[in-house]
Design a protein around this nucleic acid. Structure first.
Length: 304
DNA sequence: TATCCAAGGTAAGTT
DNA sequence: AACTTACCTTGGATA
C-alpha cells in the first residue's frame, strides 16, 4: 500500500481522530485494536482505524482501502490510493472548525461540549452506507450499530485482498436487495432487516437514490429521504448531516430531546419539524448540526 | 442464575 | 394531524 501523512498544521482548527470516528456519526470505520467505543484516549491513542470506501469521483467502482491513525501533529495513512483527498473528504478536514465554533451562538451546554472534545469533526460517509447505518440505528446502541455494519460488510461486501490482509467493502444496494430477510436477521438486525432489504431494493432498481437529496432545499431533502423504508425524520436528518453535507440538520434523537427538555424547553414545539426548526435556530442555523453532534457526544459520554 | 430493561425510531393502526 | 402500540436483539442492571 501507499503511505503518507497529513500534517495537521495544514488543517484549519483542531482535529481529533477518535472523537470524530467514535462519536456515533459513522459506523463504517473499524479500530484494529478491537477497542472501538471501549477505550477513550486522546485521538484514539495511536490506534489504527480502517475502512473501504468508494472512489471520490463516483464514476469507477474501484474501492480503496484506507487506514489511518493520529500521532503527535499529523495523520499517518496507508492506502491503496492517495489518501489525502479521501481523508480530507471523509473527515471534513476542509472545514474551518474555529470559524464554525465562532459562528455558533454562546451557550453553556454547547460550550462545555466543544471544550470536552476539541477537534471533533463531522464526517462525510457515502450516502447508501450512511442510509443503511442509520436505518439500523433505531433503538440500538452505538457499539451494536457498528457491529451490524461490520457484519453486513463481512457477509455481503466485496472482499479486497491487500498485502495478505482481507478487507470488506460495504455491500452494494444490489447485493443487500438480493439478501433475504432471514439472512439479515441472522446478523441480528431484528425488525430492521426488512427495512434494509426493501430500501436497498428501492436504490438497486433505480426507484430512488439518497444522493438525489443533495441538491434540494433542506426540509424538502429531509422529506424526500423519508420515502425509504425504515427512514423517518430523525434518520433522514442523520443522512443529511453525516453524508450529504447539510450542516444545518439537527437530528432529534433521544439525547438531544432530553437536552431540549433540560436546557431549551422553549424549543419544544411538539412536532418534529417545528422543534427541529427551533433548536436549529438556537444553535445558530448554518452549522447547527455541528453543535448537535457535540452535544450528543458530550451527553452520551456522561457530560451534563 | 433468572428476569427486566433500554438502546441515536419507524410503521401501522386509532382517535 | 396527533396519539398508541408493536417490533428484534442483546448487554448490562437488578433481584
Amino acid at each position: 500500500m501507499e503511505t503518507g501523512t497529513v500534517p495537521l498544521a495544514d488543517v484549519d482548527g483542531p482535529f481529533d481522530l477518535q472523537s470524530t470516528l467514535e462519536s456515533g456519526q459513522s459506523y463504517l470505520w473499524d479500530r484494529t485494536d478491537g477497542e472501538m467505543y471501549d477505550r477513550l484516549d486522546a485521538h484514539g491513542g495511536d490506534a489504527w482505524y480502517e475502512t473501504v470506501v468508494p472512489p471520490l469521483d463516483g464514476v469507477s467502482d474501484e474501492r480503496a482501502v484506507v487506514r489511518v491513525r493520529q500521532t503527535e501533529n499529523r495523520l499517518e495513512w496507508e492506502s491503496t490510493t492517495d489518501a489525502v483527498p479521501l481523508l480530507t473528504h471523509l473527515l471534513r478536514l476542509d472545514d474551518d472548525l474555529d470559524a464554525i465554533r465562532a459562528a455558533t451562538p454562546d451557550d453553556p451546554l454547547v460550550e462545555r461540549a466543544f471544550d470536552a472534545y476539541p477537534g471533533m469533526r463531522l464526517v462525510r460517509d457515502s450516502p447508501f452506507s450512511c442510509l443503511v447505518s442509520f436505518i439500523c440505528s433505531a433503538q440500538m446502541r452505538v457499539a451494536r450499530i457498528h457491529g451490524m455494519q461490520m457484519a453486513l460488510a463481512r457477509e455481503f461486501g466485496e472482499t479486497l485482498s491487500v498485502d495478505g490482509e482481507r478487507y470488506h467493502a460495504f455491500p452494494t444496494p444490489e447485493r443487500l436487495a438480493a439478501a433475504s430477510e432471514d439472512e439479515l436477521r441472522d446478523l441480528s438486525l431484528g425488525y430492521r432487516a426488512p427495512y434494509v432489504q426493501r430500501t436497498a431494493g428501492m436504490v438497486a432498481n433505480g426507484e430512488a437514490d439518497p444522493a438525489d437529496a443533495r441538491d434540494m432545499e433542506y426540509e424538502a431533502a429531509r422529506d424526500s429521504l423519508t420515502r425509504f423504508v425504515g427512514v423517518g425524520e430523525k434518520v433522514a436528518d442523520c443522512v443529511l448531516l453525516f453524508s450529504l453535507g447539510f450542516l444545518e440538520a439537527v437530528p432529534l434523537d433521544t439525547w438531544i430531546r432530553s437536552a431540549i427538555a433540560d436546557h431549551y424547553p422553549d424549543c419544544d414545539r411538539g412536532g418534529y419539524a417545528e422543534t427541529s426548526r427551533a433548536i436549529r435556530e438556537r444553535f445558530g442555523g448554518t452549522y447547527a448540526g455541528y453543535a448537535q453532534t457535540y452535544v450528543f457526544h458530550y451527553l452520551r459520554s456522561g457530560g451534563e
